[in-house]
Structure formats: C-alpha cells, structure tokens
Simulated assay, not measured.
Amino acid sequence: MRKDQRESRMREIEAEAYALFAQAGFENTSMLAVAKRAKASNETMYRWYGYKNGLFASMVAANARVVRDRLQEAANAEVPPLEILSRVAPVLLEMLLSERAILLNRAAASDSTGALGQLLALRGREDVLPLIDAVLQDAVREGQLHPPDDGPLPALFMHLLLGDQQIRRVIGTMPAPTKAEIAAQATLAISRLRALCV
C-alpha cells in the first residue's frame, strides 16, 4: 500500500474511532470494536498502531498536523511573522476546541495512569508550540513584537488565544464555537498580543 493510501485509510479508521469514543468513551472502546466499525483487520490495526495508546497518539498527531501544515503554507508565502500568526491562530483555535480534540482531552483527563496525557502533550502541544514560538521569535527579531517582562511569549499568546475555553469544553460548560466566533477570538488575541508587546 502506498504511503498516501495508508494515510487516507488511517484517517478513515481514526474517524470511526472518534465515533466510538463519543458513544462509549476511550476506556470502553476496544481495538476490536474500532476494527469492526472501520472494516479493518485486527492485523492491520496492531501493525499500524500497536495497542490502543498508539491509536490515540496517531489521532493526536493527525490533529496537530493540520496546524503544522497551515504554518508551513503561511511560511512559504513569505509574509511577515504576525501575518503568519494571524493566519494560523484561527486554525489552531478551531483544532483545540474541535469535538475531536475535546474527546481526546476527555480521554486523557480520565486516564489515572497519566499515559494519555503524556501522549497528548508529546504529540500535540510539544509538536506545535515550538513552531508557534519560532514565528513569535521572528516577530521579535523583526521588531513587530517585544518580549514580555514576565513569562515566555508563547505562553502569553496561548493564554490570549485559548484561555480556559478548552477545559470548559471538556467539562461540558461551553458549546462548540462557531467559525465566526473562532475568527473573532483569534483576531482579538492577536490585537491584544500587539498591545501588550509593543
């Protein structure tokens, strides 16, 4: 199977896994159930993912890839760093507040071993945040921003962009935002970042 075919098939399998997680939760979803729903063999499931945590890690990485791809696309356009950030911010926010991200975060929050949380950090935050940091540092070098006196710039940006919205989504006290709300929040975050880091 060609790499692109395998990637496409993995996304199909993972879409079925998300559907099962939504119905029964991560803990109550078996690899066999995912295989049956996705019409995949057990051999394929274990060869591609290993065990269920491998499936979880692949799902997190696929979410992060959306943001990485948009960052690369903006960087290739050779626009100023804050323009890159403006283009990526709504994509990042939409991903972090998506139903898929919320299902993954709920699974990690309910895992008493902490293993899923570690995978979520490693394949998500620790994969994407350094790329955001690089854009912010470019903005500093070009004089578009000045680093804050108290704390790292990426942490400030993420606070302005996301705040407590993801945890509110995870615990069910906030509905999924609309695209217009996401765009407005991303614009506000960039505006506040400029105001705080002049």
Rank of each mutant, 00 (worst) to 15 (best):
M1R: 06
K3V: 06
D4P: 01
R6F: 02
E7K: 00
S8P: 00
S8G: 07
S8L: 07
R9A: 06
A15D: 01
E16N: 01
Y18C: 11
A19F: 03
F21W: 13
A22S: 13
A22V: 12
A22D: 12
G25E: 09
S30R: 03
M31T: 10
L32C: 04
K36T: 12
K36L: 12
K36H: 10
R37N: 14
A38C: 08
A40E: 02
S41P: 15
Y46E: 00
Y46P: 00
R47L: 00
R47D: 00
W48P: 05
Y49N: 00
G50E: 02
Y51V: 08
K52C: 04
N53E: 14
N53A: 13
G54N: 04
F56S: 07
A57T: 09
A61W: 06
A61I: 10
A61P: 14
A64I: 14
R65I: 07
R65P: 07
V66P: 04
V67G: 04
R68F: 08
R68Q: 13
R70H: 11
L71Y: 09
Q72M: 05
N76G: 15
E78M: 13
I84M: 09
I84D: 01
R87K: 05
V88G: 05
V88N: 04
A89I: 02
A89T: 03
P90F: 03
L92G: 05
L92Q: 12
L93I: 13
L93D: 06
L97K: 11
L97Y: 07
S98D: 06
E99W: 01
A101Y: 13
L103E: 14
L103K: 12
L104F: 02
N105W: 10
A108V: 09
A109G: 10
S112R: 15
S112W: 09
T113R: 11
L116Q: 14
L116W: 15
G117M: 11
Q118R: 13
L120R: 14
L120T: 09
L122A: 15
L122G: 10
R123C: 15
G124A: 09
L129A: 09
L129D: 06
L129C: 03
L131Q: 12
L131M: 11
L131F: 05
L131P: 04
I132C: 11
I132M: 15
A134T: 04
V135I: 14
V135G: 01
L136I: 01
D138M: 13
A139D: 13
L145S: 02
L145G: 02
H146V: 13
P147N: 08
P148D: 00
D149G: 12
D150W: 04
G151I: 03
G151D: 01
P152H: 07
P152S: 09
L153T: 05
A155W: 02
A155C: 03
F157P: 07
H159F: 15
G163R: 03
G163M: 01
D164L: 05
Q166G: 14
I167Q: 14
R168M: 03
V170P: 08
V170M: 04
I171G: 05
I171M: 09
P175R: 08
P177L: 12
K179Q: 10
A180L: 11
A184N: 05
Q185D: 01
A186T: 08
A186D: 02
L188H: 12
I190S: 03
S191D: 08
S191E: 09
S191K: 08
L193C: 05
L193S: 04
R194M: 07
R194W: 00
R194K: 12
L196W: 02
